[in-house]
Structure formats: C-alpha cells, structure tokens
C-alpha cells in the first residue's frame, strides 16, 4: 500500500454482534443493510467471521463463506481482506455469553477518510475518539429533565 493510500485510509472499526441462544431470527435484513452501506460508499467491509461459543465457553470460528447461504453478501465476501488472525478469535469471543453466536465485522469508515485526510493535510492529528453509550445520553437527558423539574 502506498503512502497516499495509507493517508486516505479511513478509520477501521470492528463490531461483535451477539445473538443469544434462541433469539437468532435471520431474515436477511442484516445482510441487506450491510450491502446498502457498502454500495453507498459509507463503509468498506474488510473482514467478517462468525463465532460460536458453546455452553462450556469453547469457541469455534468460521469463515463467512462457511456460514451458509450468503445471499446479497456474496460480493462483499469475495472482497474480504482477512485481516483478523486466529489469535484475535479468543479476544473477540471474550465479550460473548456462553451458548451464543456472534458475527464479527471489521470495516473501514469510508465516509470519514476524506475528512481525516484533510485534517492531516492541515496539520491536525487525531488525539482522541470514542463512542458515547446510549445509556450515558439517557442519563444526561434525564438529569437535565430532573433539573428543569426541580429548578435546582
């Protein structure tokens, strides 16, 4: 990869989406939304694997291509970069409950790449970032509401 390509690389994130026992209800919506995001140029899917954790906590990992009918994900699967290593499986599965299945997604935030490149070009450097939990937003708003109610 050239320096230019590295400079234009957007932030890369991962997600682990768990399906607790008996709650998986796959109807194709997830695959379709993923295809929509990729086709819109919002993200580029870099890697995807499926993890299965049994009741004893033993983890099995499989490639997306081995997970059954891919439907609309066929093209995305064909372009995966397989960034995750076998060593990553246990780290990722640490968040899973026993008896669950999880999909792991690694993706580049294409939407952020031009902004990040422009910020670097202007001399800026990313020094912090993160996600604000919905729970924290709820707590903040509820605290605001309580203040308005009490007038404190």
């Amino acid at each position: 990869m050239t320096d230019y390509e590295l400079d234009a690389l957007g932030p890369v994130d991962f997600l682990v989406v768990e399906f607790p026992p008996g709650e998986a209800n796959f109807r194709g919506e997830i695959a379709q939304e993923l295809v929509n995001l990729a086709e819109a140029g919002t993200i580029r899917v870099i890697d995807a694997i499926v993890l299965v954790k049994d009741e004893a906590g033993v983890v099995d990992a499989m490639e997306l291509s081995d997970a059954g009918d891919l439907g609309g994900l066929v093209e995305i699967e064909s372009q995966l970069a397989e960034l995750l290593a076998a060593d990553d499986v246990e780290h990722l599965a640490a968040a899973m409950q026993p008896g669950s299945v999880a999909g792991v997604l690694v993706y580049e935030n294409l939407w952020a790449a031009p902004f990040a490149a422009a910020a670097r070009s202007a001399g800026g450097q990313l020094i912090a970032g993160g996600r604000i939990p919905i729970q924290a937003i709820i707590a903040s708003i509820e605290a605001d509401a309580a203040l308005e109610t009490t007038g404190a």
Binding site: H91, A95, P133, I134
Partner: peptide, 28 residues
C-alpha cells in the same frame, strides 16, 4: 469449520480481550 490457514500464525489486530458492552436495547 476452521478458519483459513492464512489466519494462523499471523499477528493479531485486536490487542486484548474485548470487554462486553452494555446492551443498548436493555437501556431502552
């Protein structure tokens, strides 16, 4: 099914065990 051989022995990119996040649905 096992992972592809190309993933074996490669340096991982997830540096440490991932902490379980609070489930958003449970907050709502």
């Amino acid at each position: 099914m096992p992972l592809r051989a190309a993933r074996i022995g490669r340096v991982g990119v997830v540096g440490a065990p991932v902490a379980r996040a609070a489930v958003v649905g449970a907050a709502i």
